[in-house]
């Protein structure tokens, strides 16, 4: 009978050996020891017995699984839209893009669109009720676009008189600007406050009111009465 080693392996090594989790050199050393040490062998067998007993008990808690069905569930793509919906969605997207592009084009390029947009002026709070800073920006944008129309020949400047007291609020600093847009068939009248002192409509001025009216049969005439579009009070 071989003599047991004086150093008994710790419990953790015996457990790891039973679990096949002890790395090779240590496992060989413990196994050699067990060959010679009855006490440790009994301990190791008890630990392995516990492991087997637990495994046996846990086998009472088995459950059947359908792996292929579960895989199908996992790999299934998200519910697809009906086939008919795809061209319909594509068409709708194209239509929305086209409409958006057309609106942009009209707003940015066509005088008709610009003037049509003027009809929304009364509902634009930035031009009507906003603080002066916001109103100034809105006025500047409006005047810049209007003057651009005259420079490109899309609008004809009929009159730009400055300055008088048109609004009855004090010094003679108000101007009247009138232009016709033959292609649009309308005339435009702007009363402005010559805020930047140029004595003509310019982007630094404040828009007091905007009115438009249809052109009479003879192109270039200034019909009356004008239809007021917006009254502002940015002062």
């Amino acid at each position: 009978m071989p003599r047991p080693s004086r150093l008994h392996p710790p419990n953790r090594d015996l457990v790891a050996l039973a679990d096949r989790a002890l790395p090779w050199p240590a496992a060989a050393r413990v196994q050699l020891h067990l060959l010679r040490c009855d006490r440790c062998r009994v301990r190791a067998e008890a630990l392995a017995g516990d492991r087997d007993a637990v495994r046996h008990q846990l086998r009472h808690l088995e459950v059947a699984t359908d792996t292929s069905a579960a895989w199908t569930r996992l790999a299934a793509p998200a519910p697809a839209r009906p086939r008919w919906a795809r061209p319909a969605l594509a068409s709708a997207a194209v239509a929305v893009l086209a409409l958006g592009g057309a609106l942009w084009w009209r707003t940015h390029q066509q005088p008709q669109a610009f003037l049509s947009a003027l009809e929304t002026l009364p509902s634009r709070p930035d031009l009507l009720d906003a603080p002066a800073a916001r109103g100034r920006r809105a006025d500047a944008a409006f005047i810049t676009r209007l003057l651009a129309l005259t420079e490109t020949g899309q609008a004809e400047r009929v009159r730009d008189t400055c300055c008088s007291d048109h609004d009855g609020e004090g010094p003679d600093d108000d101007g009247l600007f009138a232009a016709t847009l033959p292609a649009a068939g309308m005339a435009l009248h702007v009363m402005y406050d010559d805020a930047d002192g140029t004595r003509s409509l310019s982007s630094g001025d404040l828009v007091r009111s905007v009115a438009r009216s249809p052109l009479s049969v003879r192109s270039g005439d200034l019909p009356s009465p004008a239809v007021p579009l917006a009254m502002t009070s940015t002062r």
Partner: peptide, 16 residues
């Protein structure tokens, strides 16, 4: 990782 073996052994004994 070195704590797993004793923890496992104790857990088994507790369950049993």
């Amino acid at each position: 990782e070195s704590s797993i073996a004793p923890l496992l052994a104790r857990a088994r004994q507790r369950l049993l």
